[in-house]
């Protein structure tokens, strides 16, 4: 059984302009799966359909023997909390401390009443400190999230996603707002997680070279369709031309 299986997924805000067209993807293995494609081709929409931040128009997403596209309310949240997400602009709650931001990863596991009293379990707090140590930010735990640099914020975002104890991880352009050196560091971190901790990680990325370097599988998207799905070594310039269009940028 696959960890995640997407079958016949379609999405359109306006019926005449589909964003996603008949997407079929099965994820079985840990490691980084890079989704490449030009801006506006539906990569972000695809990831947001997987944890149902966006309700897809049709199709199914099988995860933990349930169809995420169908469930509602509590059962949706119980599936969602097993899917970690890392965002392009980090999306930390800026006025909360770094530690609190990491702890928000546990909100899916606790009642609103306990959330209101900020009564996190002691083992959760210990775990948050461990994760901050793992991403190298122990010294920043008490600082407000908006005092951090971009790379540091993204590490907090990753720690928050890990706090959910996710079975899969979604990363939406995690490096697009970062400089090249920091980008590599973040990709290294994701790679470690994906292989050492065995979490399948779907990464939207538009830097093809970065994708080739870290991914073990690449999915090329164009115009809302999957046009390539396979090993990074199998991607040729022809594929890239289909995906991005034109060829002058390849030189």
């Amino acid at each position: 059984m696959s960890a995640l299986e997407i079958r016949g997924l379609n999405h359109a805000y306006v019926a005449s302009k589909p964003i996603l067209h008949d997407i079929n993807i099965a994820i079985n293995e840990p490691g980084i799966i890079a989704i490449i494609g030009p801006s506006g081709t539906g990569k972000s929409t695809l990831l947001r359909c997987i944890n149902r931040l966006i309700q897809p128009s049709s199709g199914s997403i099988i995860f933990q023997e349930a169809d995420i596209a169908r469930v509602q309310g509590r059962s949706l949240r119980e599936l969602r909390r097993q899917i970690g997400m890392v965002f392009q602009e980090y999306n930390l709650v800026e006025r909360l401390s770094v530690l609190e931001n990491v702890l928000t990863g546990r909100l899916g596991y606790m009642s609103a009443w306990n959330a209101w009293r900020r009564k996190f379990k002691p083992e959760d707090i210990d775990r948050a400190f461990e994760l901050l140590d793992f991403v190298g930010l122990s010294d920043f735990a008490m600082q407000r999230a908006d005092s951090l640099s971009g790379g540091q914020r993204q590490r907090v975002g990753i720690a928050r996603a890990l706090m959910q104890a996710p079975r899969i991880l979604l990363a939406d352009e995690p490096t697009s707002s970062l400089d090249p050196k920091t980008s590599v560091e973040i990709m290294e971190l994701l790679k470690t997680l994906a292989t050492d901790r065995g979490i399948p990680t779907l990464v939207n990325i538009h830097d093809v070279n970065l994708a080739r370097r870290y991914a073990q599988r690449m999915i090329g998207m164009s115009g809302g369709k999957v046009v390539y799905d396979g090993a990074p070594s199998g991607i040729t310039d022809d594929h890239l031309k289909t995906i991005y269009g034109g060829e002058s940028w390849l030189q």
Partner: peptide, 24 residues
């Protein structure tokens, strides 16, 4: 965006308000 991130953790509506909206 901050609200979306909290929603993505599987937080309930009330918890999303508490951690995603109110701090802002």
């Amino acid at each position: 965006k901050q609200v979306e991130a909290i929603r993505a953790t599987g937080a309930s509506f009330a918890s999303t308000i508490l951690f995603g909206v109110l701090p802002q």
